[in-house]
Simulated scan of single mutants.
Amino acid sequence: MATLAELLDQGRIVPYLGPGMLALCPDATVPATPLALADLMTAQVSVPHKIRKRLTQAAQFIENFKHRKSVVHLMNQAFAAPTTPSALHRALARSNAGLLVDAWYDDTLATALAQERPEGGWLQLQGLSQSEHFGHWTGAYAADGSFLPQAPGGAQPILYKPIGGHAPAGNYLVSDSDYVEVLTEIDIQTPIPAAVQAWRTGRHFLFLGCRFDDQLTRSFARQIMKRSSDRHWAVLPEEPTRMEARFLQEQGITRIAQPLARFADELVAALQDTATV
């Protein structure tokens, strides 16, 4: 644990957060899994029974037979409730990580950054849906949520939300067509911001609250990690599936078979120890 804390303190680790991080937030009421989000959306809009539990397909049906605005409205409703950041969210926000990846739609990590860095000075980059922003893959936002025509240079911390997020503008990659557009280009890195590509080079990734039992999550992680270090870690207390195990091996990811809450407590303590040295 001390090694991870030291690497974070040196800015050599990229934290990569998944929806499982919400389990560390006792007051979280927003959906914390794709299934929970699909259930929430299909409880309000009728979709065929066979796709009710499939998030991207359900969202695509709503987009086709209602409107894209209906999808965005449902997503905005689903993630409107504020969530108090956990101790780990806050520790990561005040760490020396120059890049933090958040692969879910909630605002928790952005809230932690705002709390821990009230002076601002951090940047948010969000993936954009081509159905709403054709030809533009990423939206850039200042710490106060204001839109930036282009991402500024410099060493400011970057919060990268590859599938979009609730705040500040309700950008979401959630339907089949959203993902098809991105996956068509992601192999050549077009949808991944240049600042993210530059920062990840040679660095390690630490996956927190992530599962890799879905092709989409594996594809995004694989492409975001490209040209990084050959040594990474993932907190994965559950026994990995066959495809997850293969992915971990291929990407040089060491599994940490520890409950996320226990790992969070230990890493927060280790970061505090590092800060006092």
Rank of each mutant, 00 (worst) to 15 (best):
L92S: 02
V235A: 02
E239L: 15
A198V: 10
L208R: 01
L24V: 00
Q124T: 14
D273S: 13
A78E: 09
L88C: 04
P259K: 01
V71Q: 06
A32P: 03
G120N: 02
C210Y: 01
T84R: 11
P34R: 05
E239R: 15
P237R: 05
L17G: 00
N76V: 03
L92Q: 03
Y105G: 11
G145I: 04
V14W: 04
D176N: 15
Q156H: 10
Q77I: 12
L128G: 00
A103D: 13
K50Q: 12
Y141D: 08
K66D: 14
Y179N: 05
L159F: 03
W137P: 13
L271K: 00
P34T: 08
R52Y: 04
N96Q: 11
V277F: 13
A87T: 06
R94D: 05
R246A: 15
R52A: 11
L99Y: 03
T254N: 10
A198S: 11
S86A: 07
M21H: 00
D178E: 08
S219H: 13
S175N: 08
V71T: 09
K66L: 12
V235T: 01
K69H: 15
H49F: 12
R117Q: 13
L113N: 02
L40M: 10
Q115A: 14
L92K: 04
N171C: 10
R262G: 09
T83K: 02
R246S: 11
T184Y: 07
A103H: 12
S219E: 14
Q258F: 04
T33Y: 05
